[in-house]
Amino acid sequence: MPLVIFIDDSETALASTRMVTASMPIEVKQYTEAQVALAEIKAGMTPDLIITDLNMPVMNGFEFLKALRDVPATKRTPTLMLTTEAKAELKQQGKALGLTGWIVKPFNPQQLKQAITRVLRLPA
């Protein structure tokens, strides 16, 4: 099964994504700290899709994305930003860093499922 990792410092946001994706044919790993996810990626974890928050303490979503692109195995890993922020300049910044897409919270569960299905090319 494809591996999808969620990174969000909000445990309730992670609970929401966990429940929404429970019925999907994917393996899910969740992290409250981006630097922990990054360490596992550097140690060999190869996610098929990463969905990360933007505003997080220690390492924010953009810092994570930059570091992610420095790891050869995840240079092109599809990555979605899931955040409360919706400013066009932030989206542009994300796009320049190789972001796949942008989702504004609170997300609609069906739309999140459709986005994951689309990016991973799962059977609809």
């Binding site: 969000d8 909000s10 309730t12 946001a13 609970a15 929401s16 429940m19 929404v20 409360t84 919270k105 609170p106 997300f107 609609n108 569960p109």
Partner: peptide
């Protein structure tokens, strides 16, 4: 789902 995400907001 929205209620859980409101907590983050």
């Amino acid at each position: 789902s929205t209620a859980l995400q409101y907590q983050d907001i």
